[in-house]
Write a protein that binds this DNA or RNA. Structure first.
Length: 100
DNA sequence: CCCGTGACTTTAT
DNA sequence: AATAAAGCCACGG
């Protein structure tokens, strides 16, 4: 299967620093994709191995399906529910590529 | 090969 | 502001 896609998603999610959250579209764009659903799909399958709670919706709210579980993580990590300051995903992608 | 589904996003009405 | 529709990637039946 396309481990590339999965690997990319996991890579980005794992790269998210504590106290910072990224939206699905943000993450997707970060590794050069446009599919937030693809990211969500990967999370549902492989998200168990990554800090999925650092990945939130574009609205800055945690996953609608795991909000209560995510809250525990936020309380533990002290993650401030705050989406990327700028909705300019492309900039973030370049930033990640440059940092990589 | 076509259709439906999923932890989504964005634009339009 | 809220709702509707379309777009997007990958997978299973």
């Amino acid at each position: 299967m396309n481990d590339d896609f999965v690997e990319a998603v996991l890579q980005v999610v794992e790269s998210i620093p504590a106290g910072r959250v990224m939206s699905y579209g943000q993450v997707a764009a970060t590794f050069g994709s446009r599919s937030a659903r693809g990211v969500g799909w990967v999370m549902s399958r492989y998200g168990s191995d990554v800090p999925w709670w650092r990945v939130v919706q574009a609205s800055g709210k945690p996953p609608q399906c795991h909000e209560n579980s995510a809250r525990e993580h936020y309380d533990a990590e002290g993650t401030p529910l705050r989406r990327a300051s700028s909705p300019d995903y492309r900039l973030a992608r370049e930033a990640f590529v440059g940092a990589s």
